[in-house]
Amino acid sequence: MPTVKTFKPPKSLSGKEFTYCPGCQHGIVHRLIAEIIDELGIQERTIMVAPVGCSVFAYEFFDVDGTVAAHGRAPAVATGMKRSLKDSVVFTYQGDGDLAAIGTAEIVHAANRGEKITAIFINNAIYGMTGGQMAPTTLLGMKTSTSPYGRAAENDGYPIHVCELLKETGGVAYLERTTVNTPQEIRKTKKALKKAFTAQLEGLGFSLVEVLSTCPTNWGMSPVEATEWLEENMKKEYKVGLFVDKVGDEK
């Protein structure tokens, strides 16, 4: 009998239809997270905290216990959960407005405390759900509905580099920036996510994976143009790579 491998959705996705736009990369990252939850066998003890933003419904998309936090507060909510249930696996899923603007205090302090949670950070340099406003990660010169003349450093400051900021805090066990623009990069992101969850499972501290992502709708591009724009512009500002990896270090 020949072995037939069927492409199936991961168990840890609920099967609810995603609400994302064509070409949006949230779906890819959702699937990767669900695959990792399946592979690590942690579905029954995982709790997820969705953000405010395009992925506000993420708690419905995963077949695990979940809630949605106030804008930016997911790391604090996750902290409360983890401190209560130490054997649970808690992850937040946050966009750039949520994590890097309104929730800056929460993410920095959760990281610095070495909170044993995992944050998945989707950086697409724009506010999606509210209709394409400037994000803290918007590139200089980039036009958005609230930077109609292009982001100007003098008025709006500079794109914020979350991984570079967090790597200096003591509590971080795993920190990597990736993309999901090509099959190779998707595989790399999956590896990073696995390490991030492993860091939590081993009690090593806080872990975060930043995924540079496209927003074709609010960037005003086709999905293919958006991936090209990400390669040429986002990656120049935000260097892809590993920042902290304490997984597998001397215990």
């Binding site: 809630t67 936090a69 902290t79 409360g80 959960m81 929460e106 920095v108």
Partner: peptide, 26 residues
């Protein structure tokens, strides 16, 4: 028990939210 001094009252109340989600007194 578990005690945590939060970075702000904004965080404290959201930690309460998270802990209360688990069904324990907070």
């Amino acid at each position: 028990g578990s005690f945590l001094q939060s970075e702000s009252e904004v965080s404290a109340v959201n930690m309460v939210y998270g802990a209360a989600c688990t069904g324990r007194r907070v």
